[in-house]
């Protein structure tokens, strides 16, 4: 085995990246999602700069959901840590909490739409409103996919299929969840700044 150690030092023939291909693919997928939202938010900026833009307040509900999604990221991380340390009960608790918070977030987003409708901002109308619906809607769709993923993990945790030795899916789910949380914060701050 000493030879192997030597090899590492001179580093010529070595194993390529030690990352799991699935996890790596996941990151690439996240970059496509990122580009999608980059495209839409920059279209938003370009369009806004041309004038004829209706200003309105963001629905209050979005402020609440922003806290919810941050809280869900915290519980997700706790669930991840618990699984990594094989604390099954904790893991079950936190993954359930995360799922509940995720659903609450979605419900909150929908209430945000209701508040928009109440203040006469519809999908059809000035692009400022249309953009808001498209941005939140697209984010919501991605979040639904993340919740589906989360439910799969939830089932796996309750069946005892997630443990410190079998963490790939859990890690991927955690990454996706944090990413969508961070994405929402970006979108939310963006919407506040460029109303």
């Amino acid at each position: 085995m000493e030879n192997t150690v030597d090899l590492r030092i001179v580093e010529e023939p070595k194993r390529s990246l030690s990352m799991d291909p699935k996890k790596f693919g996941m990151w690439l997928f996240l970059s496509t999602v990122m580009m999608l939202f980059m495209a839409i938010t920059s279209a938003y900026i370009v369009r806004q700069a041309e004038g004829n833009w209706v200003y309105f307040e963001l629905p209050f509900s979005f402020y609440v959901t922003s806290f919810v999604i941050v809280a869900s990221s915290v519980t997700m991380q706790l669930a991840y840590r618990a699984s990594k340390r094989d604390r099954v009960q904790q893991s079950k608790l936190f993954i359930t909490l995360t799922s509940v918070l995720g659903v609450v977030f979605l419900a909150g987003q929908f209430m945000g739409w209701q508040q928009l409708v109440a203040s006469n901002i519809y999908l059809v109308g000035n692009p400022s409103g249309s953009f808001l619906y498209v941005i939140t809607g697209l984010h919501g769709l991605h979040l639904i996919s993340a919740i589906a993923f989360l439910f799969i993990i939830l089932a796996a945790v309750f069946k005892g299929n997630v443990s410190s030795k079998n963490m790939t899916k859990m890690e991927m789910c955690t990454t996706y969840w944090h990413f969508l949380g961070g994405l929402w914060l970006y979108l939310f701050i963006f919407l506040i700044l460029y109303r």
Partner: peptide, 14 residues
């Protein structure tokens, strides 16, 4: 492709 096709998707979606 990974960086540019999502932008076409945004354009097509709108």
């Amino acid at each position: 492709g990974v960086l540019s096709f999502p932008v076409l998707f945004a354009a097509v979606l709108l």
